[in-house]
């Protein structure tokens, strides 16, 4: 009696496990018409982040074009390397989309993974974020130049909020560093949000950050924007000077910022690429989505294919070499044949 129950129990367990595996594999069966079933969308970052919000905002505009649902799943980890590899290893039939940010372009030089967006087809690069350099109103600086002069006068005393190597503050810091001595104390946080909270509480002194997360704090006067990391003023921050005003040499890095896009395996059939590109292009042209992107403090891009590839390559070239020159890379960009900008 006892034994038979044990057997039953083991049987049920194995049925469940194989059931899960079965579901896992049937999702990959190939088709000629596309799409004939629901599509899986893998979001590179966790729920509540900028990539997540952007992905969930575009998807409802695209689904009617495809007549199918896109089921969104967050798969964070390894700074995006895990989801990138996961989607890349799936059958290239267009039923697994990667909703990603800029990170895979740096995985090579940071030694995380060899897969970057050159292995993918860019269905759509939806938007790019704008970075601003913000500080607390209690600090004396009212322009980037004042901050930079103070950094020079008091090396290793001023605290800069950061999000770790390869993160936005780090890269902007490296850009500032290319202007000469720039010795600050970088204090890394888990993301834009926690870094801004620390800045609001005065635990760090300044922060290069995505505009999205800081916009309302700047508007309410709780934070001061010293410069926009762009080559011209942006309409949402009319009185804040672009970084190129004081530092014209920054032009060579720009446009630079985090970006958000949708990608599929490069090996996918052509009709799949065309269907998806059309659907996402249509979705990203929706005025309501464009309004959302603007509210989100980003610049709509809506580019795909060749045009997107060029953007991605330039971004990778600028950023990896900046990081390499700042000594933050594990492998040289030359190993990956990334040309110097």
């Amino acid at each position: 009696m006892k034994k038979s129950k044990l057997v039953l129990w083991l049987l049920l367990t194995s049925v469940t496990v194989s059931g899960a595996a079965f579901v896992h594999f049937t999702l990959e069966s190939p088709t000629t018409n596309y799409p004939t079933r629901n599509i899986q969308g893998i979001i590179m970052w966790g729920a509540g982040g900028a990539t997540d919000t952007m992905s969930r905002a575009i998807t409802p505009y695209v689904e009617p074009q495809l007549n199918k649902e896109i089921v969104l799943i967050n798969r964070s980890g390894g700074a995006g390397a895990i989801s990138t590899k996961y989607v890349h290893n799936k059958k290239p039939d267009g039923y697994t989309l990667l909703y990603g940010a800029e990170n895979p372009q740096l995985h090579g030089v940071l030694g995380l993974s060899d897969i970057d967006y050159s292995e993918f087809y860019a269905v759509n690069v939806l938007a790019r974020g704008i970075s601003v350099i913000v500080s607390h109103p209690d600090q004396p600086w009212r322009s980037l130049k004042e901050l930079m002069d103070d950094v020079k006068a008091r090396p290793k005393e001023i605290k800069m909020g950061s999000t770790g190597p390869g993160g936005l503050p780090y890269v902007v810091g490296a850009m500032l560093g290319s202007e000469g001595a720039f010795e600050v104390i970088p204090v890394p946080f888990d993301g834009d949000g926690p870094a801004i909270t620390a800045l609001l509480g005065g635990h760090v002194d300044f922060l290069p950050s995505g505009f999205t997360a800081t916009a309302e704090h700047i508007r309410s006067g709780r934070l001061i924007a010293l410069a926009v990391v762009n080559d011209k003023e942006i309409s949402l921050l009319p009185s804040v000077p672009p970084i190129t005003l004081d530092y014209p040499s920054f032009k060579k890095f720009l446009p630079w910022g985090p970006f958000y896009g949708v990608f599929i395996n490069k090996q996918a059939p052509r009709n799949v690429k065309e269907t998806l590109t059309k659907a996402f292009h249509h979705g990203a042209s929706n005025p309501q989505f464009i309004r959302f992107v603007n509210d989100f403090g980003a610049i709509p891009m809506n580019i795909s294919g060749q045009e997107a590839d060029e953007f991605l390559r330039k971004w990778q070239s600028v950023t990896t070499w900046l990081l390499h020159d700042a000594g933050a890379t594990k492998k040289s960009p030359t190993i990956f044949e990334i040309p110097r900008p």
């Binding site: 916009a215 309302e216 704090h217 508007r219 959302f292 989100f296």
Partner: peptide, 11 residues
């Protein structure tokens, strides 16, 4: 954000 409200101190 998606519903067009800007979350922040001015909310």
């Amino acid at each position: 954000f998606i519903h067009g409200i800007q979350p922040g101190p001015l909310m």
